[in-house]
Amino acid sequence: MSQAPVLELRGIDKSFGPVQVLHDVAFSVFPGEVTALVGDNGAGKSTLVKCIGGIHPIDAGQYFFEGEKVHVGGPRDAATLGVEIVYQDLALCDNLDIVQNMFLGRERRSGLILDEATMEELAAKTLESLSVRTVKSLRQRVSSLSGGQRQTVAIAKAVLWNSKIVILDEPTAALGVAQTAQVLDLVRRLADKGLAVVLISHNMNDVFAVSDRIAALYLGRMAAQVKTSEVTHSQVVELITAGRSGELGLQNGNGATS
């Protein structure tokens, strides 16, 4: 790891009322790499991502972005830093076309009027840079797109803003085999472009296919953050289900006690 992490979290705690969801979590994301965030249901993956995205404020811990300590008080702050999250439900408007969706909430204007031509050009350029050649027209309504195409649009929307970190929440969960391959391909290309990609996934095949690094959460604790090339399939499954695997993982075994 010659490069410095673009995002580094240290000692993150997060509680919802009496329930502590995240305990002392450390998490690093590196540019040009795909970091897979894995964990069983309820391990705290979504909460961690929402803390990164500024949707949940963190109770304790430090948030470093490009080596500097920052305070993320809301989604706007995260977006300003260059953190974009693609949620599982994609958050696209079916009744709008691809360009309109990609620029939603951040429309280019010249005076009062929307600058459609510039937006269309930028959208086309972004899709081209991602080697996306599957959409017929940029003025197609999103409702007419397939699941994989929608995922592509959602990812392109996240990339459009010169973002530094793109977080993908289960991007392949609802897709077929061919479309999954295409989306994973796109994920890999994002990292190759120099972005830091965080991929949340339940699918071990996907994780091993594209990720450089794996971070496993277990009951709200970071069990281990390892290089994908240094672990086996079954080790990762053990980390997810038991929080430890041999030398790796939480050494006191049970994450529930502190």
């Binding site: 706007r76 958050a91 408007c93 429309e107 929307l114």
Partner: peptide, 20 residues
């Protein structure tokens, strides 16, 4: 942009909210 946002809220209010 205002008109665009009206359509967005009508199409998917949650997506519009997340778009700021």
């Amino acid at each position: 942009a205002y008109g665009r946002h009206i359509y967005a809220v009508g199409g998917n209010a949650e997506a519009a909210r997340r778009a700021g």
